[in-house]
Design a protein around this nucleic acid. Structure first.
Lengths: 153, 153
DNA sequence: CGCAACTCAGTTGCGCACAACTAAATAGCC
DNA sequence: GGCTATTTAGTTGTGCGCAACTGAGTTGCG
């Protein structure tokens, strides 16, 4: 693909680019966290808690394992998080009768109602990014490819 | 830019896109963390510790505040992190004589030597992303724009 | 049947991120 | 000079993320 006559990119730039990409990702992720913190403050949710609620709002009651697969999180993260959502009255845990290893997470009426309050959040976030729709799609696609490539290694 | 006759993107897609972008970012950041964890295991560094070492390798001894500005981290994160680097013998703290509020972080000889061992890390990370140089540049640019836009809000 | 291998949720321990706060030193202003 | 405001590190408390582990329940196989 590149010209055979020259290495168009010196090593030094490659190394610098790696740092920039990784650092940018780290920084962007934290910057999003900060804006979500504000946007979700009124709902009393953290961003990871909001992600769990999104899954439940969209797909209904589910076992912990299914939530973990959708969000790429394990029980070490989810168990205490779900316990906090339960304490907040948004969620109910119910051990499955047919497979007693499994615990199904249900929305309480309060958890279901919270959906209404959460509706304006995504638009606010989209606006805060300052990117166009096309740029957002590009970003999403690149990130998805990076993640799946990294998960391979 | 878009046709005036129709809303080309329905609300539902906008909302979904937001979730996808934020979630992708979150997931990609954690996926990078996992690969870095492996790549840095031999050095005995975590990814944030590695970022601090990069700053010191590139720019030399610096006050905590300067490191924090470069990495967008505050003393609540840096103080214990630096203490761990000090315990590991990679770094030395020295309270400035001219401004005794400030603490300058120096590399120890061991910390300086570690640079050699860290050299292959970035190339390994670049390869693991599976992206082309151009895609990486696009990604870096989009992320930087998002971060600065989000920091505004 | 009986037992080993596996699955699922939970716990523990450690490090990072951040808000809120403290303590000490400095800068600025009257 | 003397006072207040600001700056700089550090501490405390909470939550996330992950590795390693536990324990109960299920599956599968001889």
């Amino acid at each position: 693909m590149t010209s055979p006559t020259s290495p168009p990119v010196p090593d030094a730039e490659l190394l610098r680019l790696d740092h920039q990409v990784c650092f940018s990702l780290h920084a962007a992720s934290r910057a999003f966290g900060g804006v979500y913190r504000d946007a979700l403050k009124d709902l009393g949710l953290t961003y990871p808690q909001y992600l769990v609620m999104l899954v439940l709002w969209e797909h209904g009651a589910q076992p912990v394992k299914a939530i973990g697969e959708r969000l790429r999180l394990d029980s070490g993260t989810l168990s205490p998080l779900l316990k906090r959502l339960e304490t907040a009255g948004l969620v109910r845990r119910e051990r499955s009768t047919e497979d007693e290893r499994s615990v199904t997470i249900h929305l309480t009426p309060e958890g279901d109602d919270l959906r209404e309050q959460a509706l304006p959040v995504p638009r606010r976030m989209l606006a805060a990014t300052g990117l166009t729709l096309e740029e957002l799609r590009t970003l999403r696609t690149l990130l998805a490819r990076v993640t799946s490539a990294l998960d391979e290694s």
